[in-house]
């Protein structure tokens, strides 16, 4: 079982690599260089902070683009083209297949974040006095956030079209960053219905602000080990739940050979 999952993950990773997904990393590097060159004259004394801010935000944006746009069509493409039927005619379970695809995309994500992280640290290293290993905590939280989003996109991709899967996932990403605010806002309302709705939104969407300590890290704060641990547990719980639901939907799906 594990062997099949790893084989499928490796194949998915190879597919994304051959689709030239890593060109995005080059774009990231260009943005980092441009931000240094363009913003430096405008940000006297805060050049490193701006660079770190732009860098970390770019990592999230590019990671999100890859996860959403590759993930939303990943399964559907195989369903439409029919490549899936020869895979599932082998002793491969449908849940194994789905987990393999999820892990493959996550492997792509890790590789991208690793390369972008190295470029980021290199740029900081070249700017005197701004290099710090505390950014590694921010990298890890970004990875957890995008892993969770990966599970969300896999869930949507098993049930709706790629376009809808991408739109819904981007919606979850947006609401996920606002869910705490939505809940707090709801509690201030006099209407019971509004309060209940805000609670519902809060519990149905992941609270992605758990993973967003980028601003604090840029301003010199370090991410505590306890926070990293709790964020990991939170990410794993949401991811497993999403994959279980996705597996259940996908098991009932009718495929045509």
């Amino acid at each position: 079982m594990t062997g099949n999952i790893l084989t499928l993950a490796a194949s998915t990773f190879l597919e994304t690599v051959r689709d030239r997904i890593f060109y995005l990393v080059a774009v990231f590097g260009f943005i980092m260089l441009a931000s240094t060159a363009i913003l430096s004259p405008l940000t006297v004394g805060a050049q490193a902070k701006i660079m770190a801010d732009v860098g970390l935000a770019s990592m999230v944006v590019f990671g999100l683009l890859v996860v959403v746009f590759v993930g939303s069509s990943m399964v559907r493409k195989e369903l439409d083209k029919g490549t899936i039927v020869t895979i599932l005619s082998k002793p491969v379970g449908r849940r194994e297949y789905l987990i393999g695809k999820f892990l493959g995309l996550n492997l792509t994500l890790v590789s991208m974040l690793a390369v972008m992280g190295l470029v980021f640290l290199l740029m900081l290293f070249l700017a005197p006095g701004s290099f710090s290993l505390r950014f590694l905590g921010a990298f890890y939280l970004t990875f957890l956030e995008l892993t969770l989003i990966n599970a969300v996109v896999v869930l949507f991709s098993t049930s709706v079209s790629p376009v809808l899967a991408a739109v819904f996932t981007l919606g979850v990403f947006a609401v996920g960053h606002l869910s705490q605010s939505i809940r707090d806002f709801g509690q201030l309302q006099s209407s019971v219905f509004q309060r209940q709705m805000s609670e519902l939104v809060y519990y149905l969407t992941p609270n992605l602000e758990v993973f967003n300590l980028r601003g604090a890290v840029v301003h010199g704060a370090a991410v505590s080990g306890q926070h990293l641990f709790m964020a990991t547990v939170y990410c794993v719980a949401w991811t497993v739940l999403r994959l279980v639901i996705a597996g259940s939907i996908f098991s009932r799906k009718e495929l045509r050979g």
Binding site: G82, T83, T86, G257
Partner: peptide, 25 residues
């Protein structure tokens, strides 16, 4: 199993495709 309209990962070579299936088997 051979499907009616066989279609495989077109980013792979013939040998790579068979290596992929060999691992699944």
């Amino acid at each position: 199993y051979l499907p009616e309209r066989p279609y495989f990962f077109d980013h792979l070579t013939g040998r790579e495709l068979l290596q992929f299936y060999a691992r699944l088997l």
